[in-house]
Design a protein around this nucleic acid. Structure first.
Lengths: 213, 213
DNA sequence: AAAAGTAGAACGAATGTTCATTTCTGTCAA
DNA sequence: TTGACAGAAATGAACATTCGTTCTACTTTT
């Protein structure tokens, strides 16, 4: 006697339910530790529909990837439309990434912390996607405009965004307990002004390292 | 008619052959896309021996992980034994990581680029392992000694090593073609001195982004 | 003779996928 | 308004395959 308890059918369209269930599961357990049946159970959508919509497990992951990539592109477009210097644009991107990490953690985890190549072997790596190209081109324009110290584009771009991305990883891995948004100002300061104290560094005898638990 | 073509038996001990075959395969295809039978074929060691030595697929991954973690710890010990300031120690670690990335790529890929949680769910994340603790404690000592600008330890440590780790990821993903060792000097300079040009940044109208292919 | 290694068949559980069947939805003639 | 009906959407039991693991018989080494 099926189809009886449909008093309150989920209003969301099927593909949305599938994708959001898949996102949660993929992030929680990793792509390879999630079966289509798991997605079925979590999304309450039948196996057949899942195959109809996405063609299979990899299809789900790919659709999710491009869907979220699109969100990232829109984020970049939004930043590009604001009236900001290139340096401020870099800061704005970092601020947005930090906010997303805190408020929409799974999205960031899936996009910045997963190894897509292991389950989407034919997709280009995310660092060669449009949003990342935009980030690098902002840095390049900043160098051209004299706002950012000139140099090897890869080195400069990595210095600009590397610290932030590192902190996102640490936060997602659970080793950092403080919300990223609280660290934003200090990170920006460190990154632009550098970490030197200014005073000459005196050579010291190395001391025994004390490794904090 | 087996056991005939053993004219030149591999001199390496079994477990080494298993581990190095596994490392290559895991890095090339990802843990979940490698079967024990693949490891058997690649290492030329029988299934029985593989199970005898490591107890299974996960056992291989775990042994490999701790073996390489040990190499990292030795690398850190070596750096700690040299007569260097804390700042120089940070530089030295980055230089060593860059060299490893170029010359022993698979090791770095397995340790810094894989998602261990997906196949070793009970191991702590690598950023909470001893080598990373040592790196953070060096930064802390550098701050205490006035060699490194003081601040939130996570922020400062991420700024010190984030750029380097970011470049390693870019290199391993194949989007950066230049060897990392050639970028070392410039990265160190950017990181310590910051990316500001010094001159005041004039607010500019944003220009259309040109995204390079 | 004991220990270590090899070969490879067999097994069972997990999992990606298919497809016959059911239900829904909109249309149109009566 | 009703009812028939066609096509689309959705369902889920069943299937086929993969893969981690075990086991036995055999060989080599010490």
């Amino acid at each position: 006697m099926p189809y009886l308890n449909k008093a309150a059918p989920s209003p969301e369209p099927l593909d949305c339910r599938i994708l959001s269930a898949a996102l949660d599961l993929f992030v929680e357990r990793g792509f390879h530790n999630v079966s289509v049946h798991d997605v079925q159970r979590e999304s309450q959508v039948s196996i057949g529909s899942i195959y109809k919509h996405f063609g299979g497990k990899e299809g789900i992951a790919k659709a999710l990837y491009y869907h979220l990539l699109n969100e990232f592109e829109e984020m970049m477009n939004q930043v590009m439309e604001e009236d900001l210097s290139n340096r401020e644009r870099c800061n704005r991107i970092i601020a947005l990434l930090f906010e997303y990490t805190e408020s929409r953690r799974n999205i960031i985890e899936y996009m910045l912390h997963a190894k897509h190549r292991e389950f989407l072997p034919n997709e280009p790596p995310i660092c060669s996607s449009t949003p990342f190209k935009v980030m690098r081109s902002i840095v390049q324009q900043g160098m051209d405009a004299g706002e950012i110290r000139s140099g090897n584009p890869w080195v400069v771009a990595s210095t600009v965004f590397g610290g932030a991305i590192r902190m996102i990883h640490l936060r997602l891995d659970g080793v950092m307990e403080q919300p990223l948004t609280e660290c934003y100002d200090e990170l920006i300061d460190c990154m632009w002004r550098g970490l030197s104290t200014g005073e000459a560094v005196k050579r010291k005898r190395p001391q025994a390292v004390e490794v904090a638990g």
